[in-house]
């Protein structure tokens, strides 16, 4: 464990807490893409298949449980909660995310570390996570205005993978045989996808104005 990775995990945790705060405090999920939340739930469920078979550390197990539970809780809340689900932007959240699932799965079958069930699902979860934010970014683009908590949620979600890239660079120089090209390339793509969001987020922060994404 190094500081970059710990910072990344904490940033990821903060993004989840901000999302939960937004939904429970405002009793609204406007501006949140249900499809992105479903993709993230799938990412965690397929990445942490080894949750009960390989014990790495208490921290690792607890964080995995938190990520799985929180992503499922948000999906259930957005689908079932009678007040929250009324504020869901159903007609804006129309990204065909099934293509992202299919593309990630096909890529995982072609590019993986080992052609085994667990490795293929691990690679699938890595590729899917890189693309999972797309429905959310498209939804924000369409809805134009980004409320503070949603903007902070997406910002921290993007920042966490940037910390992981620093973690991979650090581990590359401090550990032998550190082969994780799948995660590195995918993590880079994931962070680049946030580039324009980060730009507009920084502009709104600099002008202390409400964040506006060009329609």
């Amino acid at each position: 464990m190094n500081i970059f990775r710990f910072a990344g995990d904490m940033t990821h945790l903060i993004s989840i807490l901000v999302l939960l705060l937004k939904i429970y405090a405002t009793k609204s999920c406007s501006g949140i893409s249900l499809k992105t939340q479903e993709l993230y739930a799938l990412v965690f469920l397929t990445r942490y298949l080894d949750l009960f078979t390989d014990f790495i550390s208490v921290y690792n197990t607890i964080m995995k449980l938190v990520f799985i539970a929180s992503s499922l809780a948000v999906v259930c809340c957005m689908r079932m909660h009678r007040v929250v689900r009324r504020s869901y932007d159903k007609d804006l959240d129309t990204f065909r995310h099934y293509f992202l699932i299919l593309a990630s799965f096909v890529l995982a079958l072609l590019v993986n570390e080992k052609f085994t069930f667990q490795e293929i699902f691990w690679a699938f979860s890595i590729y899917l996570e890189a693309l999972a934010i797309l429905p959310q970014l498209v939804l924000l683009q369409r809805s134009g205005n980004v409320d503070n908590l949603t903007g902070q949620y997406v910002f921290f979600l993007g920042a966490y993978r940037a910390f992981y890239i620093l973690n991979w660079i650090y581990r590359y120089f401090t550990e032998q045989h550190f082969s994780r090209w799948i995660a590195c390339v995918s993590g880079l793509v994931q962070t680049v996808l946030y580039a324009d969001f980060f730009y507009y987020y920084f502009i709104s922060w600099k002008n202390n104005a409400k964040m506006q994404l060009p329609a």
């Binding site: 990775r5 990821h12 390989d54 550390s57 964080m63 990520f67 570390e113 799948i182 995660a183």
Partner: peptide
């Protein structure tokens, strides 16, 4: 087999 190092990450 030892868990390949990437798997100790979240």
């Amino acid at each position: 087999p030892p868990i390949s190092s990437i798997k100790d990450e979240l």
